[in-house]
Computed example of a mutant assay.
Amino acid sequence: MTLPDPVLSTPKLPLDQDGGPVFTAPWEAKVFAMTLQAYESGVFTWPEWAETLGAELAKDRDGSGEMLSYYDHWLNAFETLLTRKEVADASQLQGLRDAWDKAAKSTPHGQPIVLGN
């Protein structure tokens, strides 16, 4: 996969030996793709993205003791920009998060999570 130059400058982006992004779960690839689509659609600039993600990543060193995965930070940064740019509001995003959490908890192990379960 060939990534655009701005994407390659993303803070701490995990890359494989061929320069492609590394994901440990399908949702990580999905939020990565949604972020690129929002950027390409002009929702935000890549410097805005890099600054927002960098600020989110810095929270792991704020002394709170809560360590999140890279893509948890990525998702938080994406939601921050969606809210800041008035694409979605915080209550909409929380509602979606709650619906996915409920669906995940009600889905048998090994089965695909379906929103609405």
Rank of each mutant, 00 (worst) to 15 (best):
M1P: 14
T2M: 03
L3D: 06
L3F: 14
L3H: 06
P4K: 09
P4G: 03
D5C: 05
P6W: 00
L8P: 01
T10L: 08
P11V: 12
P11H: 13
K12M: 10
P14D: 10
L15F: 06
Q17L: 03
D18M: 13
P21S: 01
T24I: 01
P26L: 09
A29D: 15
F32Y: 12
A33W: 10
A33E: 15
M34A: 12
A38L: 14
Y39F: 08
Y39N: 09
E40T: 07
G42K: 09
G42E: 08
V43D: 12
P47M: 14
P47G: 13
E48A: 12
E48Q: 15
A50N: 12
T52Y: 11
L53V: 09
A55Q: 10
A55K: 02
L57K: 07
A58E: 05
A58N: 03
D60W: 00
D60I: 02
R61G: 12
R61L: 07
G63R: 04
S64P: 00
G65H: 13
E66T: 04
E66Q: 08
M67V: 04
M67W: 06
L68P: 01
S69V: 11
S69Q: 05
W74D: 11
N76D: 07
T80Q: 11
L81P: 03
L82F: 00
T83S: 13
T83P: 08
R84H: 04
V87T: 06
D89F: 15
D89M: 07
A90T: 14
A90V: 14
L93K: 06
G95L: 08
A99Y: 10
W100L: 15
A104Y: 12
A104M: 15
A104I: 13
K105P: 06
S106Q: 15
T107H: 00
T107Q: 00
T107R: 00
H109P: 08
G110Q: 07
P112E: 08
N117I: 02
